[in-house]
């Protein structure tokens, strides 16, 4: 259950991670307010996914502190981590669906393995989660038989079926077309309001993230370069924010310049 006494759901302090001597995270500090949609933006390779995996304890951070609902998740405190896992879901970039299980079995799996609910209740909840994501017709389908968008919805259904307090989204729109990107962000915002979980999203899709988030942060060079509301992000004169935010305009300007300097042949 959500506690109403602690306004910050997730507190990250001076998080460091390096691979083979190469620093990826160089002291990330972040506070994620409870019940918000918080998006961490950043270019590819900036360490966004590494940051999220360190939070979920998939990767071990070299240094730093992570606290969830006021309790520190120390690497040696397995009880705290078990509790965190029960209250948190992770939506993988690749969806990580179980390919030998049907959609219904995929959604039912966390309930079967981590709760004491009976078979009938598990089935009811799993069907309800699929139905909320308009997947009720596909309960008997295997992940390979579903489209990319449907697989994403199925992964989200599996993530929310345990009624988590925090959902971590790793590049939820990777590889999707603009229409589907919008749909995924709209879906996250809709279900976050319906189920009141805290959503922490890492992505590089700026317009969609700004439209769907309560707060955004920009990770650059292994540190948080900016943190604020979407409107603050849009109005920011921070050079790193400007570079990232205006990259689409910069591309358009570069292409226009190329076209001006190399005009198309007129003979065609």
């Amino acid at each position: 259950m959500q506690s109403s006494t602690y306004p910050v759901a997730l507190h990250v302090e001076d998080l460091h991670k390096s691979f083979h001597g190469k620093s990826v995270l160089r002291g990330v500090n972040l506070q994620v307010p409870r019940g918000s949609v918080f998006t961490v933006l950043g270019p590819s390779g900036a360490g966004k996914s590494v940051f999220l995996k360190c939070l979920a304890n998939i990767l071990k951070a070299d240094a730093g502190r992570v606290s969830f609902e006021g309790r520190e998740l120390s690497p040696y405190d397995s009880v705290a981590h078990d509790g965190f896992r029960r209250r948190c879901s992770f939506l993988f970039q690749s969806n990580a669906l179980f390919d030998s299980l049907t959609a219904l079995e995929n959604v039912a799996l966390p309930l079967e393995q981590t709760t004491d609910l009976g078979k009938v209740e598990i089935r009811k909840r799993s069907r309800a989660a699929l139905s909320q994501l308009e997947m009720e017709e596909f309960t008997g389908h295997y992940p390979a038989e579903l489209s990319g968008g449907m697989q994403k919805r199925l992964a989200l259904a599996r993530a929310i079926v345990t009624r988590p307090e925090l959902v971590l989204f790793d590049e939820p729109t990777a590889g999707l077309d603009p229409l589907r990107r919008n749909a995924v962000f709209a879906m996250i915002a809709k279900y976050q309001r319906q189920f009141h979980f805290t959503a922490l999203i890492v992505t590089h899709d700026v317009p969609e993230a700004l439209a769907a988030s309560d707060r955004v942060a920009l990770i650059n060079d292994g540190r948080i370069g900016f943190e604020g509301t979407p409107s603050e992000f849009s109005a920011s004169s921070n050079p790193v924010v400007c570079l990232f935010r205006d990259s689409a305009q910069a591309l358009s300007d570069s292409l226009a310049e190329i076209r001006r300097s190399n005009p198309m042949p007129q003979t065609l």
């Binding site: 998939i58 896992r85 948190c88 992770f90 990580a96 179980f98 345990t162």
Partner: peptide
Amino acid sequence: NTEQIVALETMGV
């Protein structure tokens, strides 16, 4: 390879 094992672990399974 497809992160299914990691997914199980993040679920607490």
